[in-house]
Design a protein around this nucleic acid. Structure first.
Length: 869
RNA sequence: GCGGGCGUGGCGGAACCGGUAGACGCAGCGGACUUAAAAUCCGCAGGCCUUCGAGCCGUGGGGGUUCAAGUCCCCCCGCCCGCACCA
């Protein structure tokens, strides 16, 4: 290879082949070394990899390669999250079968990943749409059923009345179906649920043990689970004539202390009482329809204006029998939480306040800061929601007056229990996981519906229940439902005519246990426990923050369910979690507002932008997440083609901390590209200086300086890689490269033996340091430096301790907190001596002026601050 | 709406546990080399002011704690992520 120009087109395939032949990325359980399981969230096979994948898998690959060099037996597998809606959309739009579309995409993307040089153990690859994978999923579901973790109940879906199809939330746009444009309705269907709430407490407690998870993710999960302690109690209801209603109304509240501030009661529009009343009242029925048009997403419901309708009912205040509270149906009360009914206390809940103001209901403050006189305690536009402060006191509340809200909660709970109308209750926001999907391209749910026997599980020996391939997507709805023969089977129990379940699983199930399958991808059972015991848990999991709640919570749930059914031995699958940021790119538009892809944007001398094909003026827009709709997408394939894998990897690691968003820029890749070329030239220059075979006895000052720089860089880079601070590691490597350049410049002409030796040492260390990031270039450099064998197989170097120490230290000197001077002192200098030295300095004297020195603060090794007044 | 996060030069970022703000890279400017350009190499570089000693201002905005605040506390603004059928 040319010494002037690094040819990645030649080098990259060569080293990829060499690693493969060496079995570099193959993982085996039969190994004495400690194990390390690094896993990145597997991709959906959309067709092409995108920059987000490049970033994700580069982060993981750096760690995998580093850990191998550190003596770990590393498992770094890859697979495909292959079921899901896009395959069906492609079938509808382009007429291609979901299976063909998916497997073609996988083949293409696999090639792309290989060209990026990721050290993945491809022998463990699988796709979740392989019957070999999903048959185990079906088997586990049957075991979950036996263990009582599965339930069948009614729940709401978005229904498109024109397409006669169930819609995903993302397919509902402003309350209308994305294809038909029809107003979406809510519809109740019998569906399968996994009882994640069974583990609510355990999932919450388990978070405390996850020391290497980001606090923000744990906090989000805690809030999602939403444990709350409160009281469930019942109201007596009366109709408009004052006659008692046959049943009492149960409500749940976390704020029983505010009961004397109650000014209304609100029921969910889907509450059985509201449903019953709607039968006889057109207005209530209309209100229910209005609520149904909001769809099923909590976001849409909460964003909507708070609205309600008065029901012909009143509720009797439990402690003031003469007070009747009006009862409403309200759009912000969720049927799925608590009892689907609340009492409203406008003074101390924002939603209740908004509602009360809209309908002219009284706002009675019952909690008041202690220092405020009760008669001055007023509520404006903002409710006073705090109930924990000891500086709060109950007012307007009969026997509660004078207590803190905390005491009042206790007192009310006690009295309600005494009266027999309520009890304390722990409630969770977390709902059971609805896993039924009315779609074709998913894992079939392995049950049969028999008119005589009811729901009958498919016997395990009949698994997998596979998808029929002769299906069409020319009509809306689920092809499994209308397939002529597939669903018709004999009942396994009575042998009579029966039908298969035509719903398939939520694809989140597929991704809730794949990490365990990678331990034994060919096992006869879902997971080979011996192998799982060796590899699990995942030591480092890496993926996007967008999965902070659902995917990660479902996976934690699945591990628990698998443990309880004997399929896994631990509850927490991911020992450490890292959440990467998104990849962004600037957007461009023409003056008429059309998006333009970055490749078509040219820049003139004066900096103005133009369309390179049409010459139109182009306006630069915001830097945003890469998305097809805004055309600000850079295809990794083009980047690898133009610059090679190492440049792409290096750039994506270099600019931003991995957990923050990353802006892809042309200039940035160019910079990374130049660095690869600069390194290659530098290494070849160094190779020309033959080092002595033996390590020199002594080193010149210059050589010693370079050795210190190299070993310090090694220490810093090692720490940065361990902490996944790859951008800092990159900066340290740049610094070392600069130090080596400087050294070469000043000593190239009359290089002594010790200097040549030092140069080679520094060069080897630098190459090793960037080898996890730019593995191909590193191998090529390693060879150029005359080293034998694959660098990938070499142990990570250790810095020499004595080169890391410094005997002097530079201390900045502040006077009253402002930096005025600095001194260089021996590390061992006692504080009194430092103080004396500092006070003699001209700059210090000048800054002190005619004030007198009150104190001198010395932080050893860091700073001196002179306090003068 | 609710929950979570982020905000530092022209740009991406660095700054450990409260201790020199701006490492490193990108872009820029000046110079060398070249017939020329590219590439490469060297140098400069937060802002203001300057009598060239220095000084003042500066980490989204406002307040506070401290000898010392990008970092801790309170309030506000902007952007991003999630909200249970996108993956």
């Amino acid at each position: 290879m040319s010494k002037d120009r690094y040819n990645f087109r030649e080098a990259e395939p060569k080293w990829q082949k060499a690693w493969e032949e060496a079995g570099y990325a193959r993982a085996s359980e039969d190994d004495d070394r400690p194990k390390f399981y690094v896993l990145e969230m597997f991709p959906y096979p959309s067709g092409r990899i995108h920059m987000g994948h490049v970033r994700n898998y580069t982060l993981g690959d750096v760690l995998a390669r580093y850990k191998r060099a550190r003596g770990f037996n590393v498992l770094h597998p890859m697979g495909w999250d292959a079921f899901g809606m896009p395959a069906e959309n492609a079938a509808m739009d382009k007429g291609v079968h979901p299976k063909k579309w998916t497997y073609d995409n996988i083949a293409h993307m696999k090639g792309q990943l290989k060209r990026l040089g990721f050290s993945l153990d491809w022998s463990r690859e699988f796709a979740t749409c392989d019957p070999e994978y999903y048959k185990h999923e079906q088997a586990m579901f049957l075991d979950f059923m036996k263990a009582g973790l599965v339930e069948r109940k009614k729940s709401m879906v978005n229904w498109d009345p024109v397409d006669q199809t169930v819609l995903a939330n993302e397919q509902v746009i402003d309350g209308r179906g994305w294809r038909s444009g029809a107003l979406v309705e809510k519809r109740e269907l019998e569906q399968w649920f996994l009882k994640i709430t069974h583990y609510a407490e355990d999932l919450l407690k388990g978070l405390d043990e996850l020391k290497n998870w980001p606090e923000k993710v744990k906090l989000m999960q805690r809030n999602w689970i939403g444990r709350s302690e409160g009281v469930r109690f019942t109201f007596e209801l009366r109709d408009e004539q004052g006659n008692p209603w046959p049943e009492r109304l149960p409500v749940f509240t976390t704020r029983p202390d505010t009961i004397f501030g109650a000014s209304f009661v609100a029921l969910s529009a889907d509450h059985p009482i509201v449903k019953a009343l709607a039968e006889k009242d057109a207005d209530i029925a209309a209100f229910r329809r209005e609520c149904a048009a909001l769809g099923t997403s909590e976001e849409a419901i909460e964003k909507a204006e708070k609205k309600g309708i008065r029901l012909p009912l009143n509720a009797v205040h439990p402690f003031r029998p003469d007070v009747l509270l009006p009862v409403y149906a309200a759009n912000f009360v969720l049927m799925g939480y608590g009892e689907g009914a609340i009492f409203g206390c406008p003074a101390h809940d924002q939603r209740d306040l908004d509602f009360a103001r809209k309908y002219g209901l009284p706002v009675i403050p019952v909690v008041c800061p202690k220092e405020t006189p009760p008669e001055k305690c007023e509520i404006g536009d903002e409710a006073l929601t705090d109930s924990e402060g000891d500086d709060l006191v109950m007012i307007n509340s009969d026997f509660l007056n004078g207590l803190t809200p905390r005491q009042a909660k206790e007192e009310i709970a006690r009295r309600m229990e005494e009266m027999g109308i309520g009890e304390r209750q722990v409630n969770y926001r977390l709902r059971d996981w609805g896993v039924s999907r009315q779609r074709y391209w998913g894992c079939p749910i392995p049950v049969i519906h028999c008119p005589k026997c009811g729901v009958v599980p498919v016997p395990k020996e009949d698994l997998p229940v596979t998808l029929p391939e002769d299906v069409t997507f020319d009509k809306p709805g689920n092809p499994l439902e209308r397939h002529p023969t597939w669903k018709h089977v004999k009942c396994p129990q009575c042998g009579g005519e029966a039908t298969r379940e035509t719903d398939t699983f939520d694809t989140f199930i597929d991704s809730s246990w794949y990490y365990a399958r990678f331990c034994s991808p060919k096992a006869e059972e879902p997971v080979d426990l011996e192998k799982a015991k060796y590899w699990m848990p995942v030591d480092q999991y890496i993926g996007g923050i967008e999965h902070a709640i659902l995917h990660l919570l479902y996976s934690r749930f699945f591990a628990r369910a698998m443990k309880d059914t004997g399929h896994l031995h631990l509850k927490e699958p991911f020992a450490a979690l890292f959440t990467q940021g998104m990849v962004l790119h600037r957007t461009y538009r023409t003056e008429s507002g059309e998006w333009v892809e970055p490749a078509l944007v040219g820049q003139r001398e004066d900096g103005s932008l133009y369309h390179i094909e049409t010459g139109e003026k182009i306006i630069a827009g915001a830097v945003e997440k890469m998305s097809k709709s805004k055309k600000n997408v850079i295809d990794p394939e083009n980047i690898v083609e133009q610059y090679g894998a190492d440049t792409a990897r290096w750039f994506i690691l270099s600019d931003s901390p991995p957990d923050r968003d990353f802006e892809w820029t042309e200039a940035g890749v160019e910079g990374a590209w130049r660095f690869t070329q600069r390194v290659w030239r530098m290494i070849n220059t160094i190779a020309d200086h033959q080092p002595p075979a033996e390590r020199p006895e002594t080193f010149s000052d210059a050589a010693q300086g370079l050795r210190k720089a190299a070993h310090r860089a090694l220490k810093a880079v090692t720490e940065d890689i361990e902490a996944l601070r790859f951008n800092r590691a990159v900066a340290r490597i740049y610094e070392l490269a600069n130090a080596i350049s400087d050294f070469l410049k000043s000593h190239a002409k009359d290089m002594t033996a010790d200097q040549a030796w030092t140069l080679h040492e520094a060069a080897r260390l630098m190459v090793q340091m960037f080898s996890p990031m730019m593995p191909h270039l590193a191998e090529e450099c390693w060879q150029a430096l005359g080293q034998e064998g694959l660098l990938a197989l070499r142990a990570w170097p250790e810095p020499e301790e004595e080169l890391l120490e410094e005997d002097t230290v530079t201390l900045p000197i502040q006077v009253n907190g402002k930096r005025r001077d600095e001194i260089v002192v021996p590390k061992s200098m006692p504080n009194e001596e430092i103080e004396a030295l500092v006070l003699q300095r001209d700059a210090v004297k000048r800054a002190v002026g005619d004030k007198s020195v009150r104190k001198v603060i010395i932080v050893p090794g860091r700073i001196v601050n002179v306090v003068a007044k």
